[in-house]
Every structure is written in structure tokens, then in C-alpha cells.
Design a protein around this nucleic acid. Structure first.
Lengths: 336, 336
DNA sequence: CTGTTAGCGCATTCAT
DNA sequence: ATGAATGCGCTAACAG
């Protein structure tokens, strides 16, 4: 059977409480005793019974994360990566991750309440937050600790911890890279109104204006490759020298248009999904590892939200993509 | 504060143990008392403290699942969906899902051992099992309950519970559908040696032979759209009237080839990912909900492995894809 | 700095 | 069929 606190105490010739202290508050125990205790811990292969600890402390050191239904592949992959990063980094902080599903926002809130009340998870990550997100207010009211992945898009929202990716900076970098090749950099994005989409268009516009170029090659379509393909055909006809896209899905359509037109202008996507790797076009990487780190930081009390800067993942490709950078700092994560 | 067993007992005018019995073994308690107890439970909004229960019983009613690193998008999406299905169905059985990451197979085994020993999870799901999978033997030796998603591909493996998708049946159905349109159905798959890939090729061959057609339009490439594109160009030149693919990634390349060649033959992918929905080609859906159900069934002791039959998700599309079926039973899950 | 006492909430003996 | 005791393993108070 597994060793308990008492076993360690007996082995080390101290009381159970001292062992507990040695483990949880090592600084208040005498160095010599500490060493003896730790030796006993090693000798017995002791590890604390977490159920007992959780019962005693009513806390689980566990983060709850909702698994969203995988609608379109792109979004799904993104959250999957994020979850992976959160889980990996949580483990380093000796925390676990419990996942759950929910039918809609209300169900999610109800489930979170239930998990929190039973101390199965003591903190939560909200993903895919949107305008007037009901979940934020509900959780803030309940006093349940949470961090949103996604900035508060409207004023009225309760103040809360959040982390987001600076999409504007991402498309700005992409656009600047494209400007090194030709002046007429086009943008293919989504219709106005989606916060993230507007940000990404803004980054393109910023870069164009900073370069003194007119930001007039601009199309907006739904996140669908077929629509993208038609739009890009127009952009090419208008003389675009590069296409910066708001998503890899749109970039996929753009590649299709290039292929049909036998054109060879660079395309840059957004999210750096497997499609970008597979087709070999450059894409803006959301740096989900950084997002996860920021989220965990906030859950540990650092009281500020964060805007994480994405990175352009450059890919050189026979037909599409930006030329590889002269310097090093390329690749390492392309598709196998 | 939350109600405890004692509170309910007091409210119902019985002892704590009777309440415990009423909840865990209702059949051994007198119907009248049972009713009184349940009324008290409702009145107080009682729910058992799981930490206490877990401490007492040394079990967590929790399933551990490893989050694999998302290499290529396609694979990632698949496991993501599977995880979602498992989590959703586990919740219905009053079970939770704990996720974890691992660097490699050995690390995964070590982590599973640790989680199992501490009763943080009492059963595990192994995904992406391959030839001579070390994890299977290690877990079987340890006596840790687990189910593999993926059949044992070699003889030597320890006998164990598993669930897999009948890839052969999937491509067979896809091929049969294509045969309704033209005789020269080609297959684009992976090089021999991957169990799943060989199965999928086998299904195509089965269908061709059953129809009395020669199975000679066959190409094998790595799971990469660019390679696929070239191979499909050859298949088209050889007169293919349809392309059945071993993955959506290959199908993506096939679509590219069609586009360049301005051809209009149907393409069928495998996995029914977002790419298939976005581009509108038909694809074989792995029925991960059924897989999840079978996995949970096995974890509950049903002692047989299962082969889940996938379904062809037909999509009608202006340029590519099979014609929609005459009957109903189409759609409902296309990209938004 | 260390040891003693107490109890988190539950399920499992045993009695009755 | 129900009730009384016991302890799962741990940490929070206090006392020494």
C-alpha cells in the first residue's frame, strides 16, 4: 500500500504535522529536520493523497475548461492547441485540468457553478468570448475565479481578467513583410462587426498607411474558401502583389484562386494551422503557449490582463508564401 | 455553506448512514424512508462531497485522456472531436475527464501510472495506438484499466480492450457511391505499412472487385497535399472518373489537381474534417460519437472490443463531390 | 520550531 | 431495515 504522512513521520522520527509542514511550508521547519523528512519521503516514495488534501482544504488545484463543439476545423484546432498548452503548463505548476462540455452559454455557466461548488475545479478559462458575453457577468457575480481568452469587446462588461492575442500586430507584421516584395498588398477578411476580424483588418491598414500606400485592395467575405476564391480572383485582377488573410480558411481559398489564375503572389494566413503547414503558405501564429502562460499567471493572482503578440511564421514555398527570411529564425515546425 | 449528509439526515429524521444508503444503494432502504430522504435532499439541495467520497473509496470515477501534440491539423481535429464525445458521454454516466500531456509514450505511461496510483483517474483511453505499442503492454502489466482507440495491429500485443473504426467499410462505401457515376474509381492513399492506410485501400479494392472492375488506378504518397496534387494529375491523365482518398489532407491536394486541370470528377476524403466541409467535398465520417460510446461501454466492463462502422458524409457541390443522395439523410453539419 | 488535538464528509463494518 | 461507531489521510488551530 502507499505510504502516508504517518509512515513518513515514523520513518523520520517526527510528528505527522512536521511532515505536513515540511511539504507545504518548508521554510518554517528546521533545515536539519527538513532534510531528515525529505530523506524519509524519498525512501518511502511518499506522495500526498490528494483526495484527503482536497477534502481538508476544499480546493482542487484544478482548472476547468470547456471543450467547445468542433464546428469548423480551423477554430477547433486552435482551441485544441490552447488546451494543450494550458494543460502542459498547469502540470508544471502542479495543477490539473478537468474538461467538460456544455450545450450553450447558460449550460456552461451552470456546469461551471456546479463544478466550482463541489470544488472539482477552482478556476476556469472562458474561450471564444464575444460581444455581451453572458458568461462573464454570471461568473463575476458568482465570485468564481476565471480568466477569459478573448478581450472584452464592449464597455458594459464586468471588469475581469483576460488575455488576448494582438491580431492587429499580427496582420501588421504580415503586411510589412509583404510590402518588402510589392506595394499593392491586399487584405481578405470578414465583414465588419467581428471584433477579432476588425482588429486584423486594422493591422493591415496601419501597415499600409505607415508605408504611405493606399489601403484600397480590401475584400470581406464569410470564412469560407469558396467565397474567398472568388474575392481573390478580383483582387488579382486589380493588381494585388500579395494577399494578407484574416484566417487560414480564407488563405486556403486564396491559394485556390492563385492556382486557377496561375499567379504567384504570396499569401499569408492567420492561425498557422495544419492547412498552412500542408500547403506551405506563411501564417500568423497566435502564440498560444504565451497565451496559456498569461492565463495561468492571471489565475495565480497577477492582476493584469495581457495582450499577447503573435508571430509571423514564414514559409518559403515554390509557388506561394513569402520568401524565407535572410536571417535565421525560420522554421522548425513545418509539417512532417 | 453546503448541506452535508448529516444535514439531510437531520432534516429527514433518520441517521446519516440511512441517507448514504438511500443515495448509493436505494434498493435496501424502505420505500417510505427513501421518499422522506429524497425530499430532504431536494429541500436542502444536497449533493455529496466528492472529495470525501473519493477519499473514502479511493476512486475518482474519472477518465484520464492524453492530449496529443497537434501535429497536422487533420489528426488534431479528429482527436479533439473524440475527446469531446467521450467527455460529453462520460458526464451522462456521472464521470469526469481529466486531461494531461506527455512528451512521448514512456512519459505517457509514467504519467498514467502516477495518476492511477493517486486515484486521480481510474481508467484511461489510449489514442493513436500503433504497431508494437509499448503503452499497451506496460498498462496491461500494471493492471491499470484502459481502452485503446485503435485496434492491436500485431499479434504479440497483450490482449486488451479496444475500439476501432472500420476504415475498410468506409472506403468501400465511398467507392460504391463513386461507382454509381463512373467505372474508373481511383484510390489515393499512403504507402503500405500503416495499418489504417492499408485497411482503407483494402476497402476500395474490395468494392472494385465486387463490381468486377480492375483495381488498377492506385497511388500512394505521404499525407501531404502537394504530393497528392501531382499523383492525382497522373490519375486524371489515366482516365479516373472519381478519386477516393485515405484522408482529407490527400483530398485537399486532389481538389487542387482538379482545379488546375479544370476537371470535374468527384473526390471523397476521409475523416470529414473542416476542410471537407469548407471545400464541399464528400468525406467518410469516423462516427466518433459511436467510438466514444463503445469506449465507455468497455470501461464499464462490457468485455468485447468493437469495430465501429463509419458513414459517408455526402456533399453536393458545384464543382466537386458526389451528387447528394436522392433520399433525405443528407447534411445538417456543413460549415456555417 | 515542534507536537497534540480535532475534524473535513463520507462509506463501511458491525450491531440492533 | 436502521443506527452507532470507526477511520480514509490530511491540514488548521493551538499549545509547548
Amino acid at each position: 500500500m502507499r505510504a502516508t504522512l504517518s509512515d513518513v513521520a515514523a520513518q523520520a522520527g517526527v510528528s505527522r504535522q512536521t511532515v505536513s509542514n515540511a511539504i507545504n511550508t518548508p521554510r518554517i521547519v528546521h533545515p536539519a529536520t527538513l532534510e531528515r523528512v525529505m530523506a524519509a519521503v524519498d525512501a518511502l516514495g511518499y506522495s500526498p493523497n490528494l483526495h484527503a488534501r482536497r477534502l481538508r482544504t476544499s480546493s482542487a488545484r484544478t482548472i476547468g475548461v470547456r471543450l467547445e463543439p468542433v464546428a469548423d476545423g480551423v477554430h477547433g484546432v486552435l482551441l485544441d492547441r490552447f488546451l494543450h498548452a494550458v494543460t502542459e503548463q498547469a502540470a508544471r505548476l502542479d495543477r490539473h485540468v478537468l474538461v467538460f462540455t456544455a450545450d450553450d452559454a447558460d449550460d456552461e455557466v451552470a456546469t461551471i457553478r456546479s463544478l466550482a461548488q463541489r470544488s472539482l475545479a477552482d478556476a476556469f478559462v472562458l474561450t471564444s468570448t464575444d460581444h455581451r458575453d453572458r458568461r462573464v457577468d454570471a461568473l463575476a457575480d458568482s465570485g468564481i475565479p476565471f480568466v477569459a481568452f478573448g478581450r472584452p469587446w464592449d464597455e458594459g462588461a464586468a471588469p475581469h481578467a483576460w488575455v488576448d492575442v494582438d491580431g492587429r500586430a499580427g496582420t501588421r507584421e504580415a503586411t510589412e513583410a509583404c510590402l518588402a516584395i510589392g506595394d499593392r498588398v491586399a487584405f481578405l477578411g470578414w465583414p465588419d462587426g467581428s471584433g477579432a476580424g476588425d482588429e486584423r483588418r486594422g493591422g493591415w491598414r496601419d501597415a499600409m498607411e505607415a508605408a504611405g500606400m493606399p489601403a484600397n485592395l480590401d475584400r470581406a467575405v464569410e470564412d469560407d474558401p469558396a467565397e474567398a476564391q472568388d474575392a481573390v480572383a478580383e483582387l488579382l485582377a486589380a493588381g494585388a502583389t500579395a494577399i494578407v488573410c484574416a484566417s487560414d480558411t480564407l488563405a486556403l481559398g486564396a491559394i485556390g484562386a492563385l492556382s486557377r489564375a496561375d499567379a504567384a503572389v504570396p499569401v499569408v494566413g492567420f492561425d498557422d494551422t495544419g492547412v498552412a503547414a500542408g500547403l506551405g503558405f506563411s501564417s500568423v501564429d497566435q502564440s498560444l503557449g504565451d497565451v496559456a502562460a498569461a492565463v495561468l499567471g492571471l489565475l495565480h493572482g497577477e492582476p493584469d490582463h495581457r495582450l499577447v503578440t503573435p508571430r509571423l511564421h514564414r514559409r518559403a514555398h515554390p509557388r506561394w508564401g513569402l520568401p524565407a527570411q535572410r536571417s535565421a529564425a525560420a522554421d522548425g515546425k513545418d509539417a512532417s
